[in-house]
Design a protein around this nucleic acid. Structure first.
Lengths: 331, 331
DNA sequence: TTGTACGCGTTATCAT
DNA sequence: ATGATAACGCGTACAA
């Protein structure tokens, strides 16, 4: 069944297409009488304006796109939810694109979106070159990444987060702390690792970093290998909560007591943290706030009548102490 | 920067728009010489065809949409991932729409999508009336729901799953089994509950069902209330894994030993199951297969030159026994 | 207050 | 082999 067009409505109501258009968009003058006729016709024919034709004319789609690295990592859906709520409130539809942190896929999405009249794009965890994002015909906001090109961004204090986690472990008496970092093509992962390194150096401790993926199963297997011939660490700072969950599982299965023999800190504070045993201590990111600010900033840029200069946010992180580390007062 | 149009390319290459179109679409004749000219122009001007204009003409978008009840429930992202992989392989882009199981939102998405030339729609956990899905100008596939209107669907043996879980608990000696079901406006939740009821009746046991939400935190709080003045159940069959995780957490915090004093079975087999302590016994759904079949069936319907009669799949479920229930041989 | 006519960027049909 | 041109469905000057 092909949908009704404005033409059919016009014919049915005995008016011109222009008049129907005026009714739909509530623009220009139209008499009470014809108004009613047209509205009846619209209802009777169940007419909905064709959004594609509208887009073509207006070069606007009321759509914003979201580049997500991994839809199965709970952190991103939580973020997407926040973005979606703000966007919907302002009349925008959100489209989710799963990049898998693959630079090629990411790039392809950007070029495809370019020819689809999206109004704006939020990039989380950029993994491809900056050039891809230059001279785009729509507004962009980078989430979770500090500025390189003066474009707008929402960033989180990743270095501080890494430092915070590490120093907490150190203050709990840990000397041998392993950092299982996220992939090195993700800026935030690198920044967290830098925070870890800074803290370790300041306390004269040995830096030990292994690159991991942001996947629980991957971290689990990696940890099994690490613990295989005895555990020589007294703590692990995980690049995110999924990694932390993997470490925890491997440790418990091999008989390492957490937090007594091994302390673990994650990153993000996703729901999962509260459902492991012990619960995961983690660096909390203000997930909802991040999404909210990103959406608000983007929409401001899209609709800005005045020249919205690129504004940026640097959001704070917090330590959430739970059972996978010892209580501070136990020291 | 507004993108290059076919007109500018034509002008630059000293040919007509039609010729450029032929080059882009590799249709019709075009001499080697002009081909090269046009290709150069395209490269030089960095021209990308405007997908919106194409859509308008072709009434096709190479896009399929996905109605997801809750993006923060890990089951759905896992499913979406499978769908996306198949779709991408066949040249389709996938758009995710988060309905929150709200009939109004769901309905609104469907009408909005109607005017956007999507080629197909996959509905997971339908929550609004069937009428919304009648006479749509695109193909549809229902996932996780048994047919009402002879439309295509991928369904899972939900009643069997409910029965399987319940009978497993019974064979482990449980007499007093609580079912924390999903929302009653979701068909699959109702079916699972029916399976539970059937099994309980067959064994002459007392049916106790409480309606819950598919959210861990909600289930956690609900369980706290249930356990508050002593636990009178020896098992809980949870409507999904998130609920199971909530029950488990509440039980442990209140000092109930799982599985000795309380056995728990979830549903879905999401990743989370392996990261709780004890790990969650659950009814495994073939998540990847479900997504794959749904995508394949939809694309078949979209592209079907021959008359694709509505075909359906009824997929099986499996019991995954883990630590939240006792080993069978312990009885 | 309403209708006519053109343009949005592309594809396809028909001439040439 | 190539170029006009209508059409896809809609919105808006402009004219009436």
């Amino acid at each position: 069944m092909s949908p009704t067009t404005i033409r059919e409505v016009a014919k049915y109501a005995n008016v011109s297409e222009a008049t129907v258009s005026r009714v739909i968009n509530k623009k220009g003058y139209v008499s009470q009488e014809t108004l009613k006729q047209v509205e009846d016709a619209i209802k009777h024919l169940n007419y909905k304006p064709n959004e594609v034709a509208r887009m073509l004319y207006k070069k606007k789609s009321n759509t914003i796109a979201l580049l997500i690295p991994d839809i199965t990592n709970p952190f991103f859906p939580e973020l997407a939810k926040a973005i979606e709520e703000v966007a919907k409130k302002k009349g925008y539809v959100v489209v989710l694109c799963n990049t898998k942190s693959d630079p090629e896929i990411e790039k392809k999405y950007v070029t495809e979106l370019t020819s689809k009249y999206i109004d704006g794009l939020i990039i989380m965890n950029q993994s491809c070159e900056d050039t891809v994002y230059q001279n785009l015909p729509f507004s962009t906001v980078f989430l979770d990444r500090v500025d390189k090109n003066k474009s707008s961004y929402i960033a989180v204090q990743n270095q501080e987060g890494g430092k915070l986690a590490t120093e907490h472990l150190i203050s709990l008496g840990c000397k041998s702390i392993l950092h299982l970092s996220g992939p090195s093509n993700i800026i935030t992962a690198v920044e967290r690792a830098e925070g870890y390194q800074t803290a370790m150096k300041q306390h004269g401790l040995l830096i030990e970093t292994k690159e991991c993926k942001y996947e629980a199963d991957y971290a689990y297997q990696m940890s099994q290998a690490i613990f295989k011939d005895g555990n020589r660490f007294d703590a692990v700072f995980a690049g995110n909560d999924l990694i932390a969950a993997g470490v925890l599982r491997a440790a418990k299965e091999i008989g390492i007591n957490v937090p007594n023999d091994l302390q673990i800190i994650g990153y993000d504070d996703i729901d999962l943290c509260k459902y492991t045993t012990p619960q995961l201590t983690t660096i909390q990111q203000p997930i909802y706030l991040m999404g909210e600010k990103a959406a608000e900033l983007l929409i401001e840029k899209i609709e800005g009548v005045y020249d919205v200069r690129d504004s940026n946010y640097l959001l704070p992180v917090t330590l959430m102490a739970r059972g996978s580390t010892k209580p501070l007062d136990s020291i």
